[in-house]
Design a protein around this nucleic acid. Structure first.
Lengths: 255, 255
DNA sequence: CGCGCGTTTGAACGGGCTCAAACCTTGTGG
DNA sequence: CCACAAGGTTTGAGCCCGTTCAAACGCGCG
């Protein structure tokens, strides 16, 4: 179900249409709830003050591999914070070209691009089973309520997403493709480490094609870059399992 | 005064230091004021409801060619909306490489990237004499006040900036450099038209180098792409003056 | 088993980068 | 007003590297 076959009729969306069997807003059966304190922890907002005595609870939404979290053209209904799993945020251009904006993981904010036109502007699909926490739009803009802190936190996190998007941009800038792949592996290593996993041995959740669409190179180039790094003794590769043998040497290739 | 020569000491900034003669927050002598209604018009927020009976006034800040509006590492003190002129927003990487994120013009929001760490994350310099309107941070987060609408408008505009950044990203995606330049000219044409200028004859406010740093190609490639488009009779070029002879042919080159 | 998909490797082409030189504009100072 | 310097722009020549096309292999799944 990669493409929803519909004839565009709604002015708000040429690509997304509700249809039988598709209930994006329906609650999952095994849904549970998250507290405001957990949201704060997920977003790493602890550097700022935030009263967490609020009794607000937030829906969770569970996704299986391949399921869609957000779709271009879908009406904006709030923000999501990744609690578990890895996803792929991408844009499909008119000519069929694909660009992978980011690989959201635990603590990443999703959906801010839907604010502008009350419509999400990117497709986000689950690369692994995922667990999201939903911040409904109603709780963001309710006037007079005491959750001004929630609103502030949401926009703080949005600003962070912009910064990280700019960092991702720098991945496509360097001239040599091997450098981009080396940088990509370095960044992934750091993200796994920040999540409590080993930074020197991990399994990539995305395909070579996804990596290519993220770095703006072809699949073959990604594969060749991996092989070159293996040849130099910097990493080992077993399909999606990566072991980093020399982090220093990896950094030296990032230019 | 392209580079501020200082030794990094402040933990908040390794690149920006206040120094004698530099008063980024000081009021200009010829400063005037803008109303909330003008802000709304600049941002094209008229599609949404907004009471403009608020008496709030916003400082203007005037810049001459080459002056810096925002600098990486400078403490966040609010957002700015371009009222007049064209600027260049860029990031300088550790290896000295430069990436031009965007060319802000009338109606563009500046500074949202400073929200995350209370520090602006990009350099913004004036390519022409400019006129900015400042939205101080204090007016964005004052609890209990009635300017919740201002806050909403600011984040709405922020979301728009993210979308446009993604569109800019698509400029660096296409394989052929001539296509990127054609797309760039097409976009600039549309922006001038939206501002009430002729879409078929305009003067580029930025250098070939800036365009190159925006499209991730070299100066020579930009120049050659211009020459090729001239050779094909699609445009004429006289230094920075561009005339578009066939918009259709220009669009056909965008792939 | 056979099919589809992801991955890897090879060969050849082409386009953008690098280096280099010339031209034009602009600003400065004599 | 002119001389000069500095930087923006254009064009050329050669090389490198990523794309393209092609083929082979492995894995999962019906």
């Amino acid at each position: 179900m990669l493409n929803v076959q519909t004839t565009p009729t709604s002015p708000v969306s040429a690509r997304w249409q509700p249809h039988p069997g598709h209930h994006p807003l329906r609650l999952e059966s095994d849904e549970r709830w998250s507290t405001l304190a957990e949201l704060r922890n997920l977003l790493q907002y602890d550097a700022h003050l935030l009263r967490c005595d609020d009794e607000a609870l937030f829906q969770r939404r569970q996704l299986k591999v391949g399921q869609t979290a957000l779709m271009t053209g879908q009406p904006f209904d709030g923000l999501y914070v990744v609690r578990l799993g890895t996803l792929k945020a991408m844009i499909t251009h008119a000519d069929g070209g694909v660009h992978v904006l980011a690989f959201p993981m635990k603590g990443t904010l999703l959906g801010f691009d839907g604010f502008y036109q009350n419509t999400y502007m990117s497709d986000v699909v689950a690369l692994t089973d995922c667990d999201l926490v939903r911040i409904p739009a109603s709780s963001l803009f309710s006037p007079g309520r005491g959750n001004n802190h929630l609103e502030h936190m949401a926009y703080w996190a949005s600003s962070r997403e912009i910064i990280q998007e700019q960092e991702a941009y720098s991945l496509t800038r360097s001239v040599k493709s091997e450098s981009r792949v080396a940088r990509f592996l370095h960044i992934m290593s750091g993200r796994f480490e920040a999540l409590g996993f080993s930074p020197n041995r991990f399994i990539l959740p995305m395909s070579r094609r996804d990596i290519g669409h993220h770095l703006s190179v072809t699949v073959e180039t990604v594969s060749r870059a991996f092989s070159a790094l293996v040849q130099l003794g910097i990493i080992t590769v077993d399909f999606r399992e990566i072991k980093i043998l020399s982090r220093d040497a990896l950094c030296n290739f990032e230019r």
